[in-house]
Design a protein around this nucleic acid. Structure first.
Lengths: 196, 196
DNA sequence: CACTTATGTGGAGCGCTGATCCGGATAAGC
DNA sequence: GCTTATCCGGATCAGCGCTCCACATAAGTG
């Protein structure tokens, strides 16, 4: 890549970050280009889709979250690790309003620029979940995708202005459902296998 | 209203119903007008906003749901009434993909054409919840708005193609959270008052 | 039935969106 | 200094929701 192109790309990315933080992840691409004093075509050449732009923008956050999952796996109890990581995930999405819908769509769209990051994130959550399940802290009838869906739902709630004030409380409600193992009342029962 | 206008309105409404069922509630208004062989201006005069169109389209469904809540209040146990009604709500929204986001936005936007219906629906749910709470079947630290939010979240999940297959299962997970009263482990404790 | 009036209609146009094309500007390499 | 491959961005396109207004027509009246 040519030097001026690289510089332009970085500049656009920085501007896009503040624009998305201020106006949500569905800002018009034209607005971003305008704010960066760049032609729309230039923005779209560097980032052909909104997903590609977000992927570049959120890559470090994604890595941070997956890394944190790894740390928590050894530094905290299975239950605390799972819950605090989930809380971090929900809190993180609120920084980029509207990103939840894009991520949810990306997880089954292998062509999306966000696909790989989302799958990695889900896998990180699945590991924390499996550890909590193995220790008896979490119900065994959910899997990583269920967890991803629940987090996505909570993140979506946080994005809705009318429901956002309840988000923290509802996180606790859902968390209690994950942690309350219905099978624990009957320890002799073979746990229902996790859904594929 | 003039006779031809009324006829036109009804025709447009019917076409809009099938269009929204087929393509989700974010179909372009132009498409609806085209399919109804009507000018865009005509569609927009009868239904100035997408919300107004949906309100007219969903009015009977809204009434049906609130009526059903009233029936369940006397015909079923508090717990069954609440759960089966919530299930009906989630199932209903899946018929009109994308309506959840509009309803969620409408509940705090008093100008929205959907506002009144959403508030009524929330109130109906709140009554079923209060009954279940009074009988000890539901946790007491949630209120009608929390319930509305949880249903909206589940409905949103059902709208996401990648998560829809899990929707039924996740409904059970969330329902277990509502029904499992965390205070029940310590019956002597004064229940936390419902949030205003 | 003929005429007036109030009402309804839809094409044209506005500003916006994401997307694409291509002539001109420019950095990189010899 | 020159050539070439690369990059840029204005112009353009189709689509969106929305508004305006000349025209069509149903409804009411003599």
């Amino acid at each position: 890549m040519r030097a001026d192109a690289r510089k332009n790309r970085d500049h656009v990315l920085a501007v896009a970050g503040t624009a998305i933080t201020e106006q949500g992840s569905d800002v018009s691409m034209r607005d971003i280009a305008r704010r960066a004093d760049v032609g729309l075509a230039t923005l779209l050449r560097h980032f052909p889709t909104r997903e590609a732009l977000l992927e570049a923008l959120l890559r470090t956050s994604f890595n941070g979250l997956t890394a944190k999952a790894g740390e928590l796996e050894t530094s905290s109890s299975p239950e605390d690790a799972l819950v605090s990581w989930l809380r971090d995930c929900v809190a993180w999405t609120t920084e980029y309003q509207g990103v939840t819908a894009l991520m949810t769509a990306a997880i089954e769209d292998t062509d999306s620029a966000l696909h790989a990051s989302c799958v990695t994130l889900r896998a990180a959550g699945a590991r924390l979940l499996a550890r909590a399940q193995a220790s008896g802290a979490a119900r065994t009838d959910i899997d990583g995708t269920d967890l991803f869906a629940l987090v996505a739902g909570l993140a979506w709630l946080s994005d809705q202005p009318s429901l956002a004030p309840r988000a923290d409380h509802l996180f606790d409600v859902v968390a209690s459902a994950i942690l309350t193992n219905p099978a624990s009342a009957d320890p002799g029962t073979t746990p229902r296998p996790a859904r594929s």
